[in-house]
Simulated scan of single mutants.
Amino acid sequence: MSFTLATWNINSIRLREVLVCKLLQEEAPDVLCLQECKSPVEKIPLEAFQALGYSHMVARGQKGYNGVAILSKLPLEDAGGADYASLDHARHVAARLANGVTIHNFYVPAGGDIPDREKNIKFGQKLDYLTEMRDAFHAESPKRSILVGDLNIAPREDDVWDHKKLLKVVSHTPIEVEHFGATQDAGKWVDITRQDIPDGQLYSWWSYRSPGWEDADKGRRLDHIWATSDIANAGHGSRVLREARGWEKPSDHAPVFATFDL
């Protein structure tokens, strides 16, 4: 069984319903994981996606904030969701495919603007969220699983436009990168994108505050696709659909793709 999966922080699934449909029509991934849906589950425009062949969905939502959804052409079984750091936020949902592969869709907290948990409660929440993810993977080692989403951390020097300038900027600080690595190691997760594209600058997010985003190219790789080590060799074909950042009224994130032969 071969399937292509995409992950995309859509920044409001109802506001950008047209863009989701455009992606589904033009790129046709078998599974699309969305973050920051900003919608209760019952108000997600599922009918429009069903008309394009995406008849299956598992989701967790809330009004105006957060929210994660998995749309699929393939049958899905709801595999639950966790409230890490006890934030009462819709930031995680899991679904199981018929072949037994579990897909985890995450929206890790952004962490605010100040990288100091004493001065910024949101930064502390982000670190706590990652710590609880790490502990969960230590407690129950994931198998035959894929983890995707807006993890809000660009871990490598070539995952940001300027490593030195961003060392004190939330998403690339050493303490975040350390927590990110510990979470990845706890589940023996393999970064599929960098397995396929091991070298060079690679971004999936460009700030709305940065005019001329494409020319300046001041991006960060905040969106990730991981797989457990037992299936990582099945992953290939990774890419970032940069042009989606230039669509009309876009999300500030671009979709990230990978294909798995399982």
Rank of each mutant, 00 (worst) to 15 (best):
G53T: 09
K126Y: 01
S39G: 06
C37E: 03
W189P: 00
F260W: 07
R245T: 01
K43R: 14
D162F: 07
I197N: 11
N120A: 09
A254C: 14
W247H: 04
V58I: 14
T193P: 10
E157A: 14
K119H: 13
D78K: 05
E27V: 07
M1A: 13
G53Q: 10
L127C: 08
W247T: 02
R60E: 12
I225W: 00
L97T: 03
V93W: 08
V41A: 10
C33R: 03
E243D: 13
Y203E: 02
V148R: 04
Q62Y: 04
S207D: 11
I10M: 00
N233H: 13
T7P: 01
R144W: 05
V31D: 07
G67H: 06
K43T: 15
R220Q: 14
S207H: 06
G246F: 05
F106P: 03
S210P: 00
H163I: 08
Q184W: 01
V31M: 07
L23I: 13
S229Y: 11
G181I: 02
D113G: 06
A227R: 05
I44F: 07
D159Y: 09
V93K: 03
K218N: 10
L222P: 01
P115Y: 01
P198M: 07
K38T: 09
P29M: 08
K22A: 13
M1K: 14
V240D: 07
L147S: 08
G200N: 11
L23T: 07
P211D: 13
V93I: 13
A227G: 03
W8F: 12
A51Q: 15
S171F: 09
T173M: 11
G112Y: 06
N99H: 03
V190M: 06
V148F: 02
K249F: 11
G200K: 12
R245H: 00
L76V: 09
H224S: 07
P45I: 08
P250C: 05
D162R: 09
D116R: 10
K249Y: 10
D158Q: 08
P142I: 08
C21T: 12
K188V: 10
D150F: 01
H138I: 15
Q201R: 15
P75N: 05
Y129W: 14
T102R: 04
S86L: 04
A136D: 09
G187F: 06
G124A: 04
Q184V: 14
V177G: 01
A95V: 02
F180D: 06
G187I: 05
A69D: 01
D217N: 15
K73H: 00
H236D: 01
R16F: 06
E157Q: 14
G112H: 08
D199L: 10
K249G: 10
S251Q: 05
G212S: 03
E140F: 00
A234W: 05
H163S: 14
A232F: 02
M57F: 06
L166H: 09
S251D: 01
P250I: 07
S39T: 12
K119A: 13
A48K: 14
E157L: 11
C33V: 02
G212R: 12
H56S: 02
F257K: 05
E178R: 13
K164G: 08
G246C: 12
L52D: 05
F49V: 06
P250S: 01
M133D: 00
A182K: 14
L87I: 11
A51H: 11
S251V: 09
E47P: 04
E17W: 06
Q195R: 12
H138D: 12
S2K: 15
K218D: 04
R144N: 15
T228K: 04
S55Q: 15
N233E: 15
E243T: 13
F123L: 10
A182T: 11
